[in-house]
Design a protein around this nucleic acid. Structure first.
Length: 472
RNA sequence: GGAGAGGUGGCAGAGUGGUCGAAUGCGCCGCACUCGAAAUGCGGUUUACCGGCAACGGUAACGUGGGUUCGAAUCCCACCCUCUCCGCCA
């Protein structure tokens, strides 16, 4: 969320930032909205001020027993009050309009983010590792892994496309990766291990800029309904005995059930987190923190859920793009002056995992046109997949500045300064996406005979298993 | 799910229709005392928004949303959350 005061002070700078994102200028329109909003607010406050003044007069008159004066002033206030609802409605309306306009505008890019329109213009910052020389043609994981326990067919049968059933040592290797990541991030990089809810309310999603714009990208629960009514309904059907199968009756029942569903309360609705960035970051939602609590570093290994609404047809084969996947997430809550250094530190924490697993990767600084909605600067890590002969994203680390903190209202009290509060900066990054790391291990550690060697770093987690082998 | 209690400032905790934005304690900031520290004393200390260069003035907020009233932290209604007990249950 942007600060309207900054836009007011520097409209050209704001529009220039939008232009770098490829967006039309908006400052002028926002400022007009804001002026109307402020005028409406002032009108309300003037009326309230008069009302309060008069009410005090009444109180004083009553105390003195001067009923005549009290009644006279009461009449005056009554007239004033008639005009107030309209003023208040106008002020509320203008505030809501400004908020609605602001909340769908993405964060502005940091100055050092390269200009560009799409992913082709991202800047490669560095490469690590050497791609292994194969004396056979390396396979893609989607071809190699089914024999080793990555069961796409069963996943699809249970849940549809983009769901996978992992079996045996493949499932164990997946678990080993998650444990390994969590252990490195907690023990070596100072992140506090967390186990947060993966179902969250609207506020947490809004605060981490997933709402209102990206509701379609996430799954939501919405099927709680009135149990008693349903039970009664079923009881009725049972009583009806053989007549239950009457088409009209069934249709009627179906209509009633769908009505019950629609009447659910808003509070019954939860979102399945698309990333535990949501849970971890929103854990400080609405708080006024002590400066001494910063930096706050949190990590969690959780399931993540994405509808992939905009990705129809992309990566449908294999384990790269799933509706449900695990990720070891890193979140930092820091002072503004520390956020750039923290960003670098976070990327290093993610890189460490790839290096320990000896997986070649490259680091990209995303250009303005490829950054996510809330980010002001983002690094992506892309891992080498020899089967595909391509680098694929495996981590994304973003500094959102105070963008999310404003939405969440998360501030801290500046030490030594009596009155000062400031918004924190929030950062999030994957350290790493477990499913994609599993893909990378399979493709990089595959052997000519169709087996996969377990990387050394994971051996402590594998209970003696040193390679994945096809079932006999 | 049932019964009861409760949600107030950074924290704890008073306040049940009118100078209550809110006592008190803790914490924090400043000053005094001290060589220094502790202890003590004095003063200050909620947040957001609107107006103003500023000093300052105004408005709002006592879980959330409605309502009653000239006036609501205080009364009424709904909802959310927490705690205790009971029931059910992975």
């Amino acid at each position: 969320m942007h600060d309207i005061r900054l836009i007011r002070e520097n409209p050209e700078g704001f529009d220039a930032g939008l232009a770098r994102r490829g967006l039309e200028p908006l400052a002028r329109a926002l400022i007009v909205l804001d002026e109307e909003r402020r005028a409406a607010t002032t009108a309300v406050q003037v009326a309230q001020s008069r009302r309060n003044e008069a009410s005090k007069l009444i109180g004083a008159a009553m105390a003195k027993g001067d009923r005549d004066t009290a009644e006279a002033v009461k009449a005056e206030v009554a007239a004033l009050k008639d005009s107030m609802p309209a003023l208040e409605a106008r002020a509320d309306d203008m505030a809501a309009k400004l908020k609605a306009a602001l909340e769908i505008i993405p964060n502005l890019p940091a100055d050092d983010v390269p200009h560009g329109m799409g992913e082709e213009e991202n800047v490669e910052v560095s490469r690590w590792g050497t791609a292994r020389e194969f004396d056979f043609t390396p396979k893609e994981h989607a071809d190699l892994a089914p024999a080793l326990g990555m069961d796409f067919e069963t996943g699809a049968r249970l849940s549809g496309a983009r769901f996978t059933f992992l079996r045996g040592d493949m499932a164990r290797l997946h678990r080993a990766l998650g444990q390994f990541m969590l252990d490195v991030q907690t023990r070596e990089h100072g992140y506090e291990e967390s186990n947060p809810p993966v179902l969250v309310g609207d506020d947490a999603m809004y605060g981490t800029d997933k709402l209102p714009k990206f509701g379609n990208d996430s799954f939501q629960t919405n099927l709680t309904y009135d149990d008693e009514r349903l039970k009664a309904q079923y009881f009725e059907w049972a009583q009806a005995g053989g007549d239950v199968a009457e088409p009209e009756q069934i249709a009627q029942a179906a209509v009633e059930i769908s009505q019950l569903r629609r009447r659910q309360k808003d509070t019954d609705r939860r979102w399945l987190i698309p990333t535990s960035e949501v849970s971890l970051t929103a854990s400080v939602m609405g708080e006024l923190l002590d400066e001494s609590a910063l930096p706050m570093r949190l990590t969690a290994l959780t399931l993540c859920f994405r509808s992939e609404a905009g990705a129809a047809g992309r990566d449908t084969r294999g384990f790269i793009r799933q509706h449900q996947f695990e990720k070891c997430e890193l979140v930092s809550i820091v002072r503004p002056e520390d956020s750039e250094a923290e960003h670098q530190r976070m990327v290093r924490a993610a890189e460490t995992i790839l290096e320990r697993l000896d997986l070649p990767y490259r680091k990209l600084l995303l250009c303005t046109g490829d950054m996510g909605f809330g980010a002001r600067k983002t690094y992506d890590l892309e891992v080498w997949l020899p089967g595909q002969g391509a680098y694929r994203e495996i981590s994304s680390c973003s500094n959102t500045g105070e963008f999310q903190a404003r939405r969440m209202n998360t501030r801290y009290r500046v030490a030594g300064e009596q009155k000062k509060t400031e918004f924190v900066h929030t950062l999030n990054g994957s350290g790493l996406a477990v499913g994609r790391t599993l893909v990378a291990v399979i493709e990089n550690y595959q052997n000519a005979d169709g087996t996969v060697t377990v990387p050394d770093a994971l051996l402590p987690y594998m209970g003696g298993v040193t390679r994945l082998e096809p079932a006999k």
